[in-house]
Design a protein around this nucleic acid. Sequence first.
DNA 1: TCTGGGGTCCTAGGACCC
DNA 2: TCTGGGGTCCTAGGACCC
Length: 408
Amino acid sequence: MQRIIFHMDGDAFFVGCEVAKNPGLRGLPVVTGEERGIVSALSYEAKTLGIKRGMPIFRVKKDFPCVLVLPGDYASYTRFSQMMFDIVRRYADDVEEYSIDECFADLTGLDRTLKMSYLEIAERIKREVTVELGLSVSVGLAPTKVLAKVASNWVKPNGLTVIDPEKTAGFLLKTPIEKVWGIGPRTAEYLKKKNIQTAGDFAEKDVSWVRNNLSQPYESMWLELNSVCVSQVDSEPKTVYSSIQKTRTFHPPTRDTTFLLSEFSKNIEDACRKARHYKLVSKKISFFLKSRDFKYFTLKIVLDSPTNAPEVLVHEVRLRLGEMYKPGVIYRTTGVTLSDLVPDTVQQGDLFGSGIKAGKFESIHRQLDLLEEKFNKRVVYLGSTHKALNKKKLGTDSEDLDRDLLFL
DNA sequence: TCTGGGGTCCTAGGACCC
DNA sequence: TCTGGGGTCCTAGGACCC
């Protein structure tokens, strides 16, 4: 059966949220990303001035003093995001929250249920988001997810574009190949060498050509461009992860191992907290240090039994820091990845390995996680994380911090 | 004073086994 | 003086997404 897929995309979403919170900003050149040092999102007025995503904030401040630079406020963006998706759910059950500012919905059959045309449903969602939340969005309606993305991108900002099956060819021949979802700069370059300039050129190729020249995911993409629905709208909230990563960049860069270890400790705690939340454990953990000149130094460890207890990992990285730390190198980022995650149902304790150590911490974490979820606030940190917290909370008296937090 | 953070999937190539 | 031919599993790294 022919499906009708809806895609909605926030226009300059982070800035859009800032404007929604403070309507006085409307019409002004605004960027967010001050805390990151590069532009995350920019208003269309800022774009007109020649500012681009990823531009260093210091350059914006220097070359465009009229531009308002704001720090990101992710908690509020997440709230707007949820309110936006809730509006879509007034109409459709099947809503996939694809990213903080994008969702898909399967509208198939809702024209009869709701006694409205598909276009009318899309218009109403868009209008309610605009009126109730003060956010501008662009919307696409098409037979597949890939085509719905092409559609929502067609007119931006504030667009609503329908791609009927009969009209796809016209749209695709005017869509540059690099604008197709899943085609990045490398693949675009490769395809252009093969004389494929537009999504239409690609869609017109034989399936055998696609199989012989590209890897598997591109065949799905090719099918979707040809109106064959391959990827379903998946409304299940994500609960399975194959990996969990936490990284933090700090400034100034440093070679102070005590500080680096506390940054690792913080990342490990955050990653393990998330793993515990989803009841996952890992026995393959990799750590990295990123140097000032963006070189990576990694350390991989394999435990005897999987864990999500930060104490074990903090211990390991402290013991083996020397395997990735090079004296004389200055570092800007640390990170940790828990991979090969498995459900922590029955912890078959490894009596002689690290399993027994992890076991000791299990009930402590269970209690602390409950406490923290109840107060929706981090309450307890490892002592090894102390330094990283002080560093982060600039302007906060560290004694105040100690009064609120308990260190193990 | 350039360059954040969090994911997924695929491929090539080596190790190892029979 | 010529060195098979499979298969599987794992890792590193690339490409892509927001």
